[in-house]
Amino acid sequence: MKQELDLYSINANRLEKEILNRTSFMSNAKWFKLFTEIENEKIKIHSAHIKFLLPDRTYKFHFGGFNETGFGDVSELGPFKFNEIEWILIPAKHETERWNRNEKLASEIIFQPLEKLEQIMDALGQFEYNITEEGLKVYGYK
């Protein structure tokens, strides 16, 4: 038990140091407001990627299961707080591979609602984001 607490403390300290070295663009309230509006507008996001401040890799991310401070233990990522998010990328298109036994069929391409997401962010207030060919990236920190 003591070792678990020590690892938690070490991670919390590393996170705090990393936050102090970055420019912050989001607060718990802004993340919560954004995710709530996406949910209220019933916007379907088929795929997204998230990058946390500490692990140097990205993860597939699914919207849902959040509260005022972060996400609960509802996905393969486990629970996490909003202040851990470096950025979230919503790709311009989502590709679903299709197979018929061993034969690969043409993939299904779904264009994601980036314009609608941009309209929501502009209506809600100041968000640091950009849209490229890759998709829409919302920054928590830079």
Results as ranks from 00 to 15, higher is better:
2 K>D: 13
7 L>A: 14
8 Y>W: 14
9 S>D: 14
13 N>Y: 13
14 R>C: 15
18 E>C: 06
19 I>Q: 05
21 N>V: 05
22 R>C: 15
22 R>Q: 15
23 T>Y: 07
23 T>F: 06
23 T>V: 10
25 F>K: 03
26 M>H: 04
30 K>E: 13
30 K>T: 06
32 F>K: 09
32 F>W: 07
33 K>Y: 11
35 F>C: 12
35 F>I: 04
38 I>Q: 00
40 N>S: 14
41 E>P: 13
41 E>V: 05
46 H>T: 06
47 S>M: 06
50 I>A: 02
50 I>D: 04
52 F>S: 08
56 D>S: 11
62 H>G: 13
62 H>K: 11
62 H>Y: 14
63 F>A: 02
64 G>N: 03
64 G>A: 11
65 G>I: 06
67 N>E: 07
67 N>P: 03
71 F>C: 02
73 D>W: 04
74 V>N: 15
76 E>H: 14
77 L>R: 09
77 L>K: 09
78 G>P: 03
80 F>T: 05
80 F>A: 10
81 K>E: 13
82 F>I: 03
84 E>L: 06
85 I>N: 04
86 E>H: 09
89 L>H: 08
90 I>E: 00
91 P>G: 04
91 P>N: 12
93 K>P: 04
99 W>H: 15
104 K>L: 07
104 K>W: 00
105 L>C: 04
106 A>D: 15
107 S>N: 11
107 S>C: 15
109 I>T: 06
109 I>A: 04
110 I>Y: 10
110 I>W: 08
111 F>K: 08
112 Q>F: 00
114 L>T: 03
114 L>H: 06
115 E>G: 14
118 E>W: 00
121 M>P: 03
122 D>P: 07
122 D>C: 15
127 F>V: 05
128 E>T: 13
129 Y>A: 07
130 N>M: 09
130 N>T: 09
130 N>G: 03
133 E>N: 15
134 E>A: 12
135 G>W: 00
137 K>T: 13
138 V>Y: 02
138 V>F: 01
139 Y>R: 07
142 K>I: 11
